[in-house]
């Protein structure tokens, strides 16, 4: 995993502003325009604003959600552990009550911007929201990878035993070292490589032919 680089220029982004507050729509879009973003305004009517059909991208979008909306907007979230919205969210805080702040956190806000919006604080909020989102996404990716490796742990044990049996090794450290070297040559994690070794051998004994395709880990 590469060290995360901070985003500092938001000029190629599209902002979706979900708010019914006229003061926000008067002050926030001009400031965002100065920072090079395009802005799309969505106001809530009888129904909550539904963004689940919008093809949100973490690199291309940022969503501003007003905490004072009568109905919280519907935002699509990623699946898996450490679920995140599909794009960074900035919470606009008017009524500073715990229930409002909680609903913004639940919407996935990684930064708050107090209303009335003051132009000089928008860049900081945007910087925090986007970069905090990226770090959370990195963490959640790392967590998913560790989960996978935890599930593959039993294959490591099986592969070591298999190798010791097949090659007549009496030292499990030696068997591990061989698997480690081969996994690095295959550019796979040791767990993924051991899973491959074990499943290949199972498939070969079933059909007599190699059917499993070696898959590279997400990293």
């Amino acid at each position: 995993m590469a060290p995360s680089r901070f985003v500092q220029n938001f000029s190629r982004r599209h902002a979706i502003l979900v708010s019914n507050d006229e003061r926000v729509s008067a002050t926030l879009p001009p400031t965002l325009a100065r920072l090079g973003l395009t802005v799309e305004h969505r106001a809530t009517g009888e129904e909550a604003v539904d963004l689940s059909q919008v093809p949100l991208q973490a690199e291309d979008h940022v969503v501003f959600v007003d905490g004072d909306l009568p109905r919280a907007p519907v935002l699509p979230f990623s699946a898996g552990p450490g679920s995140l919205p599909l794009a960074p969210v900035v919470g606009l805080v008017g009524v500073e009550a715990p229930s409002r702040l909680r609903s913004l956190m639940q919407a996935g806000a990684t930064a708050f911007l107090a209303k009335p919006v003051y132009g000089g604080s928008v860049f900081s909020a945007l910087y925090l929201a986007v970069n905090e989102f990226a770090q959370k996404a990195d963490l959640s990716g790392a967590l998913a990878a560790h989960e996978t490796r935890r599930r593959q742990r039993r294959y490591v044990i099986k592969a070591i035993l298999k190798l010791m049996r097949e090659r007549g090794l009496d030292d499990d450290d030696h068997a591990f070292a061989i698997l480690r070297r081969e996994s690095m040559q295959a550019r796979l994690s040791i767990e993924a490589y051991c899973q491959y070794v074990v499943q290949r051998s199972a498939a070969q004994s079933e059909s007599g032919a190699e059917t499993l395709v070696m898959t590279r880990s997400a990293e």
Binding site: P3, Q8, S11, R34
Partner: peptide, 23 residues
């Protein structure tokens, strides 16, 4: 262009060598 939105790259520059690690 006070925020360098038209000139600069979206990501800050990487100053150090790429980090390699064993997988």
């Amino acid at each position: 262009d006070p925020y360098l939105v038209r000139a600069a790259a979206p990501l800050e520059a990487v100053a150090q060598r790429p980090k390699l690690r064993v997988v």
